[in-house]
Design a binder for these strands. Structure first.
Length: 564
RNA sequence: CGGGGCGUGGCGCAGCCUGGUAGCGCACCUGCUUUGGGAGCAGGGGGUCGCCGGUUCGAAUCCGGCCGCCCCGACCA
């Protein structure tokens, strides 16, 4: 591709509203442009990278027996009503000219299951893995960070159909293999982490997380361990136990309603306190959740422990049922207590807790002796907690893929059943598996960029070779660059040729911004030796020059072969 | 949905407080010179100042309403 013919709008300055590196560089390098909030156009160079990500995904899906197909973006809303998802806020709803109710698909469980319900009759028709690349539309409350979280994006979603749990496990394992290979091949640093199965039900799920500064999830990492903080479990750092007493002793703590205030007033570390968090479940039950004073309640883990949704209790509810807000605690509270395992497992007394009386706390509180409880794991893990003896660290990451055991969540409401050998009708056991190619591209930019711009891995680069022709048209160096371009193209290389009239600085800076793996420069200097200069973009490493002439393509292949 | 910020040429910004018909840098076009790290000179093109309404002789500027976009939080099958 000649740059004089290419639509590649590079910018010297970052757009004013961009912050994430992938957003800034994506726009500056001319890969993407914004159409509206969370609505992005892939320009030619960016689209090439996007297509490369798609090609990798397609190859690996085919390798595990996936069958590619294509389903519509517009669905009848009725289909979504049958699975109970038609009222989701994230679902775009629309009507056609006749007033028929439609939705823009945010995923394709409904449509693929609808078809399989009609097409699968016998266990002989199973298993199947079907997938497609299709636009997903989601009315996101807050699109952000350029292409990282958008309202419309291409997703590869795959669905597995099996006759039983063992089959599902097999399909799931195949996807683990495919996904591991996909993210390896894409050159990403990634982790497969345990994830929350959410309100969708399902029996297991993993997310593929790519660490990057602009990531919106957090993953807890330790040697041999990786989990979304939403579900991560770890051994807490111990805190010095408080002074045990034969019975709780009330102490005056006027006006001290926060952990910090109480700890300061009593001269004890925050970890000696018990933090009480009253919640009301969706079923209307009041519960008192208690965690260590220096810990934080994890809403996702709490929801899973409760097996239903919840909201924080209102002050009036706390006042009426437990005690004065700011001074509540588990001792004497007339509501069920859920005690975090970090406290329960310590098996010590000496805790400080609210006294359920104004301006008072209790010292020497001992779980079990002073209050009954159910032990649950509902705290958020923290950096420094231990897993298998190793301290965990917590990193921001972007979810680039997920795999999910759906079970019969969709097959039952949509009547997707089959007859087994015994002639018994059974629901199909399903799994769903998503990957966002745009996020692979964005994560790659985030992970590899330096102060000069993008630094693509070969697997995702829009072009393998960026050939910079210095000098103006008519000069010997330009003639040599033209010739090299022709030779490389003829040999099948993906090469971007900067044949513009601009100055050297402009061209070299653009090459570093766009970040193709191998840069070849033909100027007067190297031409005197009959060479093109070669530089690896990753690390700005100078390589052995490429002798111009018949052997050039072979030498370029060699230089490329040494790059990631 | 709560909080904060911003809408002026393709990009980045000034002008607004104190009203007088729009400016800077980059980019773009023409010519000449220049050509290894974002060149120089000369000439030139391009803006309903987000939209609607109000105040005023006169609105980018003041007032009201609306729309859009960004950031933080909430939310996120």
């Amino acid at each position: 591709m000649r740059m004089t013919e290419l639509l590649l709008p590079t910018e010297r300055e970052a757009p004013a509203d961009a912050e994430a590196p992938s957003h800034v560089l994506g726009v500056r390098a001319g890969l993407v442009r914004q159409l509206g909030a969370g609505l992005w156009t892939w320009l030619p160079a960016g689209f090439r990278s996007h297509q490369r990500a798609i090609a990798i995904v397609r190859e690996e899906m085919d390798a595990i027996g996936g069958q590619e197909m294509l389903m519509p973006v517009i669905h009848p809303r009725e289909l979504w009503r049958r699975t109970g998802r038609d009222e989701l806020d994230e679902l775009f709803k629309l009507e056609d000219r006749r007033g028929a109710r439609l939705v823009l698909a945010m995923t394709h469980e409904e449509s693929v299951t609808f078809h399989m319900a009609q097409l699968v009759r016998s266990y002989r028709d199973l298993p199947k893995i079907l997938y497609h690349f299709q636009v997903k539309a989601r009315d996101e409350p807050r699109p952000r960070a350029g292409v990282l979280r958008t309202r419309e994006f291409v997703m590869k979603d795959a669905y597995s159909f099996d006759r039983d749990e063992a089959g599902l496990q097999e399909s799931y394992d195949k996807h683990v293999v495919a996904y591991d290979r996909i993210f390896d091949r894409a050159g990403l640093e990634w982790y497969r982490v345990e994830s929350d199965v959410g309100m969708m039900g399902g029996s297991g799920a993993h997310e593929y997380m790519a660490p990057c500064a602009a990531g919106e999830n957090e993953v807890a990492l330790a040697p041999g361990y990786a989990a979304n903080v939403e579900v991560a479990r770890a051994e807490p750092r111990p805190v010095p136990p408080g002074e045990p007493l034969a019975a709780p002793l009330e102490v005056s703590t006027p006006g001290a309603t926060t952990i910090e205030q109480v700890a300061g007033l009593l001269g004890v570390p925050a970890g000696t306190l018990l933090k009480a968090y009253p919640v009301v479940t969706d079923g209307g039950d009041l519960r008192l959740v208690v965690v260590r004073g220096d810990h934080r309640v994890n809403d996702v883990k709490l929801r899973n422990a409760l097996r239903e949704g919840f909201r924080p209790a209102h002050p009036e509810e706390i006042e009426r049922r437990i005690g004065p807000p700011g001074f509540i605690g588990p001792v004497g509270a007339q509501v069920p207590v859920l005690l975090d395992e970090a406290v329960a497992a310590a098996r010590v007394g000496g805790w400080v807790a609210g006294a359920n009386r104004p301006d008072a706390h209790l010292r020497g509180v001992e779980p079990g002796r002073d209050f009954a409880f159910e032990a649950v794991d509902v705290r958020s893990v923290e950096a420094g907690d231990l897993v298998g003896g190793h301290a965990i660290r917590i990193e921001p990451a972007i979810e680039v893929g997920n795999i999910f055991k759906l079970g019969t969540r969709y097959s039952e409401p949509l009547g997707a059943t089959f007859l087994d050998e015994a002639g018994v009708e059974r629901p199909i056991i399903m799994g769903s598996y998503g990957i966002g190619p745009a996020r692979i591209v964005a994560a790659s930019i985030e992970q590899h960029a330096d102060e000069r711009g993008i630094s693509w891995p070969r697997a995702l680069a829009p072009w393998q070779v960026h050939l910079v022709g210095l000098g103006k048209a008519g000069t010997p160096e330009r003639a040599a660059a033209d010739e090299l371009y022709g030779a490389l193209r003829g040999a099948g290389f993906e090469v971007l040729y900067d044949d513009r009239a601009g100055g050297a600085g402009e061209k070299l800076t653009d090459a570093e911004l766009l970040g193709c793996p191998l840069r070849l420069t033909v100027g007067r200097r190297a031409l005197a030796d009959g060479n093109a200069e070669a530089q690896a973009r990753r690390g700005q490493v100078a390589l052995e020059p490429v002798p111009l002439g018949d052997d050039a393509p072979a030498v370029v292949a060699e230089r490329l072969g040494g790059l990631v």
